[in-house]
Amino acid sequence: MTLNVLLAILVGGLFAMGIYLMLRRSIVKLIMGLALLGHGANLLIFTSGGLVRARAPLIEEGETIPSAPFADPLPQALILTAIVISFGVLAFMMVLVSRAYRAVGTDDTDEFTGTDH
């Protein structure tokens, strides 16, 4: 098994579990599903951005360029941004869900149908 097969399985697994949780009726599971989905997407970028067992993209003292082989820094920056954004979204979503629970009185999304009928 090569490395990217392994990571493909990991990405696929995270997406699958994320989706499965999103399809549950519990709003708590919904959030966890979204969290897993976020992890999956981050790893997807990490993997398809060119995965290598490489040094961190840091320039050592006295050098002017990082010594090869170094990992592609751009996907890392993208993922960092994405992690932070999904944290913000997740935090908001968690509180939203707890407020909705308080307003509706249940954690079952099947009861959240007031706005569509």
């Binding site: 990217n4 990571l7 994320g18």
Partner: peptide, 30 residues
């Protein structure tokens, strides 16, 4: 459905892994 999503994403990772044409941008950053 969840399994299908997982499978599609996994095969997409596999398929696109080999496409990479260059690292111009990261070389520039380096």
């Amino acid at each position: 459905v969840a399994g299908a999503v997982g499978a599609v994403m996994a095969s997409l990772v596999l398929l696109t892994g080999g496409l990479r044409s260059g690292r111009d941008v990261s070389e520039f950053y380096a």
